[in-house]
Each structure stands twice: as structure tokens, then as C-alpha cells.
């Protein structure tokens, strides 16, 4: 289990002032479950993922992995203990091939597995293994390769940050089916999917809504999906009315 206890995180803005991005979060991610983390843009979802991975440092609180306090551990140490994160916007690398990065992700994995996971994310291994991770790949291709790395690594906690972004409709459905079937009821692992996709959310065991750095709703899809939908509809209505008023003016 991964536990966040009263986690706060600050960044400094352009004026050098500290602003609080995460405000006292308490979350438990259990094994055998698939979590959806959703909420408006800028709500703090990626920040949570980066705090868990150790990329951002929290200013208050503790993070526990299997009851061990990992708050002070580096990114490397956390990765080795079993935390994995597929970036929302994966960086590109000049001169590294897809095969290289997959080998880094899982040094002991056989080539057969590298091929398998590329196929799983909808990429033909023959065409992609030797391609450069530099500027030549499309946004969707980079995202798929990012997911292949995490699927291959299969750490205790896998956090996918907007896996649907930039990935075509044909692939994403298959891919999510794969993630969900792989992690649901898996007694050893946890998946966290940060997403805006309304097809993904109902497939998960639990939903967390993050807004303004706090949890505004939490529960099973049955319990809270209608709440989210109502809220979205309200917002859409407000915005539409706003438009109408603007036009009349």
C-alpha cells in the first residue's frame, strides 16, 4: 500500500512567492485496485504523481510505501523500491533508441518481452525498436512508448499520467483494457490512472477528484460518477449562459 499523509507541496511563482499546490492530502492506494484521479486542469494531479515519485519535494507530511517512510528517498531509490510513473509529457532523448530506453526500464527483460510490450501499446516492434527517441516521433508515439516502459517495469505502484492524451481512439480502448485487466485484483500491485477520459473512469475501482490541491470527492464510480457528471453539466451550462450574455451585449 502507498499512503500519503497530510501532504503539502509548494512552488515559488514568478514573483518569488511560495504558493501551495497541494494542501494536506491524505490518500491510501491499496493493492489490487485501479484508481482514477481526475479533476480540472491545474488541480494538482501531476503534482501528486511527481511528489510520489520524488521529482517534486513535499513541504509537509509523509509518504509510506508498505509502511516504510520513503519521504526522504531520492527518485532513484523510490524507483528501485517499486514506484513507477509514466510522464504526462515524456522528454525526448537524442541518440537513445526505443530499445535502449526499454532496456533501461527493465535491464533483465528479454527482447521477446520488449517486442511484446511494444505490440501491446500498438507499435510494430520491427519498425520502432531501433528508432531514435528524439524529435522524429509523434506525440502519440512518445506516449505509447512511455506506457510500454511502465508496463514492462510493472512496479508495485504504476502511475499513468493521462495515458489517453494524444493516443488515438483505436489504441486507447485496448490499452486501458490491458491496464485494468492487469492490475484489477492483482494482489501485489496498484495502478493509478490520471485521466480526463469518461470512458476510463467507470472502469476503475475508485475515483479521486482533485481540485485546487485538495480532494473534493472520492468513491466508487457508482457512488460519485453522477456527481461529477452533474458538476460538469452545471459548469457547461454556466459557460454557455456566459457566452449567450456576451453575444447579446
Amino acid at each position: 500500500m502507498l499512503k500519503l499523509e497530510d501532504i503539502c507541496m509548494q512552488v515559488s511563482n514568478d514573483n518569488g512567492e511560495n504558493i501551495e499546490i497541494l494542501k494536506g492530502l491524505n490518500i491510501k492506494f491499496q493493492k489490487g485496485k485501479v484508481y482514477a484521479v481526475t479533476g480540472p486542469n491545474g488541480g494538482g494531479k501531476t503534482s501528486i504523481a511527481k511528489v510520489i515519485m520524488g521529482i517534486y519535494r513535499h513541504s509537509k507530511g509523509h509518504i509510506y510505501l508498505e509502511d516504510e517512510d520513503i519521504s526522504e528517498l531520492s527518485v532513484t531509490e523510490r524507483a528501485r523500491k517499486g514506484i513507477g510513473y509514466a510522464f504526462q509529457q515524456p522528454p525526448r532523448f537524442k541518440g537513445l533508441t526505443i530499445k535502449d530506453i526499454l532496456n533501461i526500464a527493465s535491464p533483465e527483460a528479454d527482447l521477446i518481452y520488449l517486442r511484446k510490450y511494444l505490440r501491446d501499446v500498438g507499435l510494430c516492434p520491427e519498425d520502432y525498436l531501433d528508432r531514435d527517441l528524439g524529435a522524429g516521433l509523434s506525440g502519440g508515439e512518445i506516449k505509447r512508448i512511455e506506457m510500454a516502459q511502465l508496463l514492462l517495469r510493472a512496479p508495485l505502484i504504476s502511475i499513468f499520467d493521462e495515458p489517453e492524451a494524444g493516443v488515438d481512439l483505436w489504441t486507447i480502448q485496448k490499452l486501458l483494457g490491458l491496464i485494468v485487466s492487469r492490475y484489477k485484483n492483482n494482489p501485489h500491485k496498484t495502478a493509478v490512472i490520471i485521466t480526463h477520459n469518461e470512458k476510463i473512469i467507470p472502469m476503475c475501482d475508485e475515483i479521486l477528484v482533485i481540485d485546487g490541491g485538495v480532494i473534493t470527492a472520492q468513491g466508487t464510480p457508482k457512488e460519485i460518477w453522477h456527481l461529477i457528471k452533474d458538476e460538469i453539466e452545471c459548469k457547461v451550462r454556466d459557460q454557455c449562459q456566459g457566452d449567450v450574455i456576451y453575444e447579446i451585449k
Binding site: 515519485m53 521529482i55 531520492s74 527518485v75 532513484t76 524507483a79 528501485r80 513507477g84 510513473y85 510522464f87 515524456p90 522528454p91 532523448f93 537524442k94 541518440g95 537513445l96 535502449d100 530506453i101 533501461i104 526500464a105 516502459q149 517495469r153
Partner: peptide, 24 residues
């Protein structure tokens, strides 16, 4: 971002630097 990405795959900072330079 490149450094933390490779570190998130389990490389140390030094290994990450070397990997990036070798590729480059």
C-alpha cells in the same frame, strides 16, 4: 526532465548523465 525521467527508471543521477551523454 531527462535526468529525472531516467532516474524514475531506476538509474542513479550519474548513470543518467552518462546515458544521456553517450546517446548524444
Amino acid at each position: 526532465e531527462q535526468l529525472v525521467k531516467l532516474m524514475s527508471l531506476g538509474l542513479t543521477e550519474e548513470e543518467a548523465v552518462n546515458t544521456i551523454l553517450e546517446g548524444f
